[in-house]
């Protein structure tokens, strides 16, 4: 464990909690893409199956349970509890165009052709594009609530910090996972446009960002 990975995990946790609290407190999921949240729940489910088979550390197990729990709680709030506030007309990204290619790629490019490994690879590839429905929805509505932009900032920051963690681990431990690194670079690049808006608009104090 190193500081970059720890801050990355805490940034990820912050994003997940910010979103869950935002929906719970405002009793509304307006502006939130339910499709992205379903994809994240799928990412955690396929990646953390090893919860059932192995124990790495208390930290590892606790965080995985929190991530899965919050992901499903968020999906529940969006599609069940506060369904009336779900903006289905703007959450129209065709997720099958993500899941099918990612599923195919996971079978073609992986470290080991075992079920657990293929599911892990699928989850890594899926996570790199899971935010697209959310970014697409914001571009369609033309705006995002401030709290949603903080959610996206911490979510984007987490994988950027993981990239630094992988540099650190390569240099100090010789650890190197090409699949996670390439997917992590793609994932972080997808946020670049948003990061630029977040920083520039954030300074002007405007309460909404308007992606191009």
């Amino acid at each position: 464990m190193n500081i970059f990975r720890l801050t990355g995990d805490l940034s990820h946790l912050a994003a997940i909690i910010i979103l869950l609290l935002k929906i719970w407190k405002t009793r509304s999921c307006a502006g939130i893409s339910g499709k992205s949240q379903v994809l994240f729940a799928l990412v955690f489910t396929t990646r953390y199956l090893d919860l059932l088979t192995s124990f790495i550390s208390l930290y590892n197990t606790t965080m995985k349970i929190i991530y899965i729990g919050c992901a499903y709680a968020t999906v529940y709030l969006i599609y069940m509890k506060f369904k009336a506030t779900y903006d289905g007309n703007h959450d129209t990204f065709r997720v099958e165009f993500l899941v099918v290619p990612v599923g195919g790629l996971a079978f073609l490019v992986n470290h080991d052709f075992s079920p657990l490994e293929i599911l892990w690879t699928f989850s890594i590839y899926l996570e790199s594009v899971a935010i697209l429905p959310q970014l697409f929805m914001i571009s369609k509505t033309g705006e995002a609530e401030t709290i949603t932009t903080h959610y996206l900032f911490f979510l984007g920051l987490y994988r950027a910090l993981y990239l630094i963690n992988w540099i650190w681990r390569f240099y100090f431990e010789g650890f190197f996972d090409m699949i996670a690194i390439v997917a992590g670079v793609v994932q972080t690049i997808l946020y670049c446009d948003f990061f630029y808006l977040y920083v520039t608009k954030g300074e002007s104090g405007s309460n909404k960002i308007n992606p191009a």
Partner: peptide, 10 residues
């Protein structure tokens, strides 16, 4: 290749 030794990250 042991799965857990490879994937000890979240």
């Amino acid at each position: 290749r042991e799965f857990t030794s490879l994937h000890d990250e979240l």
